[in-house]
Write a protein that binds this DNA or RNA. Structure first.
Lengths: 167, 167
DNA sequence: TATTGTTATACTCTATAACTATA
DNA sequence: TATAGTTATAGAGTATAACAATA
């Protein structure tokens, strides 16, 4: 049961540090670009992008929350901002009266279009410039299993202990 | 001059998305662990870890800021919190009277020791569990050039345009 | 004049808990 | 009873600009 390694070897440590450093820089740069080009936070961009990708341009609040935001109220807050800005619309779902369907507006798609070229430019120039096509494919092959593993791992790993009474 | 690609191919897009998803999940989980195990934010942990790694247990404020925090005032804020908690000490530098030397205390090292096992456990279980030794080495080889490239790339890539007048 | 660091301030974001309404 | 979403609220973090002090 090698579920909880007691240490990381130097190579693992290096990978972990590099991963954090690289994504921090990337994210920070991308956030600036999104803010300047379209007055969007990264989370807002992610939400818009998800809606824009959907065939219907819509998603339920709950579906949007998964993976983008970690609390319901956080999503309500962000959806409220997007709606106030006219980039999305919220309406009760037809089938389930409890649900809210969020739909991207034309203005939302336009904003996305405003922001995307610069976004691609930053990601391409910062992340992919030093990588060959083979490198990118290798990276894809390495990240996919990690991603799948994390998706299938409940957040329990965060708090393995301290779980005796009412929590 | 392939400096600003106009698009990302599907594999690149997948890598980018997976990278964001994986590190978001990892960071979120690690942040919970650090908060629960030692009442530390991730930034605070990074600062403590840097100081702990230093032979002298010290760094100048400016050196600490590089890579961990993106504004001077942010570092002052975090250093203030750490000092208030007794985990670091700030003192004027001997050589340069403008500089402040931050030093980790015994309590700081103890806090680090409190937190590290769980930290390693989370990172190992979440990031490295699905990766073989060869995988990790391959990943290291792919991330290193990206890291170096980002380090050597001034943040200019964030705002390529809009730079006519006084900004 | 440039650099180091602090302060004041304002703002964004996030999370918890209590609440409403529907399934 | 469980699920979907909102609200109120409080707290953590960040950044900008003005500032003081030293190089």
């Amino acid at each position: 049961m090698p579920d909880a390694p007691l240490s990381l070897d130097p190579v693992q440590l290096g990978v972990y540090f590099d991963l954090i450093e690289v994504t921090s820089l990337l994210r920070h740069t991308v956030e600036q670009q999104l803010r300047e080009a379209g007055d969007l936070s990264y989370v807002q961009f992610q939400l818009l992008a998800r809606l824009g990708d959907s065939p219907t341009g819509s998603h339920r609040m709950t579906d949007l929350a998964d993976g983008v935001v970690y609390s319901r109220s956080g999503l309500t807050y962000q959806a409220g901002l997007l709606e106030k800005a006219g980039l999305v619309v919220r309406a009760p779902s037809p089938d389930d009266e409890r649900s809210i369907t969020v739909t991207i507006t034309d203005a939302g798609r336009a904003r996305l279009a405003d922001v995307l070229p610069g976004h691609i430019e930053v990601v391409g120039g910062l992340l992919f410039e030093p990588l060959s096509r083979e490198n990118v494919e290798a990276l894809a092959g390495l990240l996919a299993p990690v991603r799948d593993h994390m998706r299938s791992t409940p957040p329990r790993s965060a708090a393995p202990r301290r779980r005796a009474k009412g929590e």
